[in-house]
């Protein structure tokens, strides 16, 4: 039972025939998807499959060469969706952890009166209260990623995109990040995360979109994907074969 605080009404996110190329190389080929509200979605695939580009296109950071990205049947433009993104390498502003959160809140029009209280809360939820006054650049990479999650979460997004958030973290930090991702999910935010790590996908995913060479090979429930994948590519990936 989800105890959602946020009303998710910008979803479904629909991609129709999205194609993207850079430097003469096709990165995404006619990707069509529909991502519904609810369960955690993991976009899985080997390195170079086009996962990060797909996530950036969904978030509106990149415009596809062809095709369209629509929220709620094109009723809402990308800028009107409450969405946030956490990147593989956390980007911290050169100020304290607390000020990093306040900055995000101010950008989103939070009144001055509420800034400190909300920032305190966000840091407490992610176990960073003790380092609130520490310059964000002095935090460990794991703490920085938790701060990036806190900064995204505090905006109460309807959708949170995570681009391999644990790719450069040790197991303890990975676990902390995954716990926070589950907590954000419980708060009612739709999670869309990329990963190339099978074990992580098993832990996090409710739904799997399997991407290979810029194409969606499978789009199914996690149980179906891990137990009986349809495509030889997914079967090979699950068997630990190197996919090129």
């Amino acid at each position: 039972m989800r105890t959602g605080q946020n009303v998710t009404n910008s979803l479904p996110l629909t991609l129709s025939d999205v194609t993207y190329a850079a430097n003469g190389r096709n990165i995404l080929c006619q990707v069509s998807l529909e991502i519904e509200t609810g369960p955690r979605t993991v976009i899985l695939g080997p390195n170079g499959a086009g996962k990060s580009v797909l996530l950036r296109i969904c978030h509106g950071l990149i415009t596809p060469r062809e095709g369209s990205v629509c929220w709620h049947g094109s009723a809402i433009v990308n800028g009107g969706v409450r969405q946030a993104m956490v990147f593989q390498r956390p980007v911290m502003l050169r100020r304290s952890a607390h000020a990093n959160i306040r900055y995000a809140l101010r950008l989103n029009g939070t009144s001055k009166r509420k800034l400190n209280h909300l920032a305190d809360e966000a840091l407490a939820r992610t176990g960073l209260s003790e380092v609130a006054r520490t310059p964000a650049h002095h935090l460990s990479i794991g703490e920085q990623q938790r701060l990036a999650l806190a900064r995204a979460w505090v905006l109460k997004p309807e959708v949170l995109f995570l681009d391999e958030p644990t790719a450069s973290l040790d197991p303890a930090s990975t676990r902390a990040v995954e716990d926070i991702v589950r907590a954000i999910d419980r708060s009612g935010t739709k999670i869309i995360m990329t990963s190339h790590d099978l074990a992580q996908a098993r832990r996090i995913a409710h739904e799997v979109i399997f991407l290979h060479k810029g194409k969606v090979i499978e789009d199914t429930s996690a149980a179906m994907f891990f137990e009986s994948p349809d495509s030889p590519e997914a079967q090979g990936f699950l068997a630990g074969e190197l996919l090129w």
């Binding site: 978030h59 950071l61 946030a84 990147f87 980007v91 502003l93 900055y103 950008l107 989103n108 900064r151």
Partner: peptide, 24 residues
């Protein structure tokens, strides 16, 4: 180069991004 995607993602418009970068 380092901040671009993060600032756009957080909702910073061009002017806000400019002042943020000057401060950073």
């Amino acid at each position: 180069k380092e901040y671009r995607e993060q600032l756009i993602s957080l909702g910073a418009g061009p002017t806000r991004a400019l002042t943020t970068l000057l401060w950073e």
